[in-house]
Amino acid sequence: MQTLTGTGVTMGDRAQVRDAEFEAYMQARQPSLLRTAYLLTGNRHNAEDLVQTSLAKLYLAWDKVQDRGSVDGYVRRIMVNENNSLWRRGWKKREHASDTLPEHPVVDEYDEGRSSQLWEVVQTLPRKQRAVVVLRYYEQLTEAEVAEILGISVGTVKSQASRALATLRGRAPESLHPRHSEEER
């Protein structure tokens, strides 16, 4: 076994440490990544595939990325780019034909199911608007962080989010409209 440094760390030792670090990260973050991937793709099969590919690319870049102290941002960016590139390559949506909902969909009893109707509309948004919506309103990232992940300007994030909200309001059922909400009160 080749000794790399005078500290006694061998390549094999380093690989074991590296894999252990990666595995710890993966185990800790996988559920969260899967949830984000689900919101980006709209079904669990594609979400799991997206997470696996994204983690694989993260694994290949692990030495490079972990020094940046922003692994979460990096893997999110891989995931969004990968999802967008798959969309561009024209096969992801074909698999959407077999969309299935999560195992335990929850209807919020306090909003009489209005929010689940929103999800239906979210799934019709263009991919970039949808990514902005997921990162901004699910991941609760700042506009600057969303811009970094998507590789677009903050101004575009703002306009995409605004347009997505306008679409949601326009296409969502009447019960989501402000006037209706006021009347309910």
């Binding site: 559920p31 689900y38 799991e48 696996q52 694989a56 290949l60 969909p105 929010s115 689940s116 699910y138």
Partner: peptide
């Protein structure tokens, strides 16, 4: 409402956890 709905859709999402082997195999 949107943020709450997105959480509602996925907070109970289950799945088969990937192993390190799954990921390194794809890598």
């Amino acid at each position: 409402l949107l943020g709450r709905q997105l959480h509602d859709q996925v907070d109970h999402l289950g799945g088969h956890p990937l192993s390190l082997g799954d990921v390194t195999g794809r890598a």
